[in-house]
Write a protein that binds this DNA or RNA. Structure first.
Length: 553
RNA sequence: GCGCCCGUAGCUCAGUUGGAUAGAGUGUCAGCUUGCGGAGCUGAAAGUCGCAGGUUCGAAUCCUGCCGGGCGCGCCA
């Protein structure tokens, strides 16, 4: 609907420009946006203000000329207003909104979904935590953001693939194995110290205890590698269990080691070398990243012969595109933001269109408990796990809190607030609206009241401004989802749902003016249709965020 | 020192890419119960949009410089 109007305005504007022999400024475009207040109509356009300079005329006059040129072949406009500085306000014919209601009722649980103009196969790589410990609340933000972005891509007509990349070799894992070994010996009552930079988390104590119970002292001698293996197995099982609780299912777990086994790391290095982008110095192999305008050159292969993380990362990103993805999205914390350009530039040098490589950075999660901020580090034991928080708040609240803020701002997760199962918790307000809607619908069924067919729907009975506003707001849902998906900003959806829920609560509270179920059967059926549509929209929105929509609370 | 992110109501944050009177939640205060679920609703108070300049019809949004917070700047991952 907005697009339709925008097109009409664009044509009218083009005609005005043509008549003047003028061309629009480069970054100019005719945009129609929903009006903020009903006084300003249903939609508004500020294009005349942007054309004042090129046309050398007052914006008001330009607005009038555009309006004069405006065609309305389908008769969707009731009124067009030219106002103060140079805005054009558009008022729709009332039954335009009937189409919205009709659409919601017809599409049901598919309402909001759309078809992409250019469907893309998108890899969303997220979490990607190495199996060195349980998922922390920071990983939790990554996990929920990634999952919801994938869900949003799905409902806007794209094909996301969720991938988890991990590394179970190298120094980190060796230290982990040694830490477990120490814990094991401690479990047997022996005096053993953790390695200097060992992992201090309680979880290793538990794993060690299990090993001690099962194998007694048999592991004191022999293959030390098995501690690493045991740690990895146990921790990965733990991580998967946590993801399961969050309702996240990965399509692919990709082991960095595969890149070595398939020779892709070697190949990447050779191709970079062939492109003249590497050199040797101090016995190490360096990437000429300064050639890409980056700060400094970086090491690809250490003098020890081991690759740094950078080289496999480059190979990995090339591998992603080899698997025929149109787009690749990485979710990373702020500590990785500096490194991404190097991966991107080098991957680009290998012939990949880097415009299709995208980074979503999220800022750290500060956990607040009793007014105190908890600093988190996996190595030190001072972190809070996703599981601990889930025990207190459940997945719905957790998901909501993690996406209700833009990814690139710091997130203060107030544990005390999240724990509160009360009206202070915004997610309940939306869920409560849904439960309340279900209650009304149940009651209608008990009374034998049926939903009218879309073709014979008494739309005209919905006369109040509140009803019109509700329908209008529902009409924006598909566009909100498209925006949220395209911008990778899920908070647009939570905000929207909050608004819609509040509008409904306001509407239904004023039972004097618009009680849904009344003596007037036709009116009741019309309002039942309205209310059902609101329920559908809320339920769909929540589902798209992975949050449940309870029928009773 | 250099690079990236951020600074908006007491608190936590939005702000449709430069548009009309800067909005929500929460907190505070005052109200709403013979009423489809009060986990709700109505109203009020609360802002020099970090500071100072600049760009133009118009700036929370863009450019510059400061101030303050976070993160990064290894042959660590």
């Amino acid at each position: 609907m907005r697009e339709q109007l925008q097109k009409l305005l664009q044509e009218a504007t083009a005609n005005v420009l043509l008549a003047e022999g003028a061309t629009a400024p480069e970054d100019f475009s005719v945009v129609v946006v929903p009006s903020k207040t009903p006084d300003h109509g249903d939609f508004a356009c500020s294009a005349p203000l942007g054309l004042a300079k090129v046309l050398k005329a007052p914006p008001l006059a330009i607005a009038q000329r555009i309006v004069d040129q405006l065609q309305d072949p389908d008769g969707i406009l009731r009124k067009v207003e030219v106002v103060k500085p140079g805005f054009i306000n558009l008022f729709l014919v009332a039954d335009q909104w009937h189409a919205v209601l009709k659409r919601v009722l017809e599409e049901g649980e598919n309402y909001g979904c759309s078809v992409a103009a250019q469907p893309e196969r998108v890899m969303v790589e997220f979490v990607s935590a190495n199996p060195t410990g349980p998922l922390t609340i920071g990983h939790g933000r990554n996990a929920i953001l990634g999952d919801v972005i994938a869900r949003l891509l799905e409902v806007t007509g794209h094909e996301p693939v969720r991938e988890y990349y991990f590394n179970n070799a190298g120094r980190q894992m060796r230290v982990l194995g040694e830490s477990l070994q120490a814990r094991y010996e401690q479990a047997l009552g022996r005096d053993a110290a953790l390695p200097e930079d060992g992992y201090q988390g309680e979880y290793l104590v538990e794993i060690a205890r299990a090993i001690a119970e099962e194998h007694g002292e048999n592991w004191l001698e022999g293959d030390e590698d098995r501690f690493k293996k045991a740690a990895e197995t146990a921790i990965f099982a733990d991580i998967r269990a946590t993801l399961d609780r969050l309702g996240i299912v990965f399509d692919v777990y990709y082991n960095e080691n595969t890149l070595y086994e398939e020779g892709r790391v070697e190949a990447a290095l050779e191709d970079l070398r062939a492109a003249g982008l590497v050199y040797e110095d101090d016995g190490a192999v360096w990437l000429r990243s300064k050639n890409f305008g980056l700060e400094r050159d970086r090491v690809l292969v250490k003098s020890s012969g081991e690759a740094t993380y950078l080289l496999p990362d480059i190979a990995y990103h090339r591998e992603k595109f080899r698997r025929k993805f149109d787009r690749v999205i990485d979710l990373l914390g702020p500590d990785h933001i500096e490194q991404f350009p190097y991966v991107k530039a080098a991957t680009g040098a290998l012939g990949i269109d880097v415009e299709r490589m995208e980074l979503v950075v999220y800022q750290w999660v500060n956990l607040r408990s009793g007014g105190e901020l908890v600093k988190m580090s996996t190595r030190k034991a001072s972190f809070v796990t996703v599981d601990e928080v889930l025990d207190d708040v459940g997945p719905d609240v957790f998901r909501y809190f993690m996406i209700d803020r833009r990814a690139d701002t710091h997130l203060d997760f107030d544990l005390d607030l999240a724990k509160e199962r009360s009206d202070r918790n915004p997610v309940y307000k939306i869920q409560y609206a849904h439960a309340r809607l279900c209650s009304i619908i149940r009651k209608a069924q008990d009374q034998g009241l049926t939903l009218p067919l879309a073709s014979a729907f008494p739309y005209a009975r919905l006369e109040s401004p509140e009803e019109a506003e509700l329908v209008k707001r529902m009409g924006r849902f598909p566009e909100i989802l498209q925006r949220a998906a395209a911008q990778r900003e899920p908070q647009e959806v939570t905000r929207y749902l909050m608004e819609l829920a509040t509008m409904f609560h306001t509407y239904v509270t004023d039972a004097q003016r618009h009680r849904v179920l009344s003596e007037d059967e036709e009116l009741s059926r019309a309002r039942l249709g309205l209310v059902s549509a609101v329920r559908t929209t809320l339920a769909n929105g929540l589902r798209m965020l992975g949050i449940t929509a309870p029928e009773r609370m």
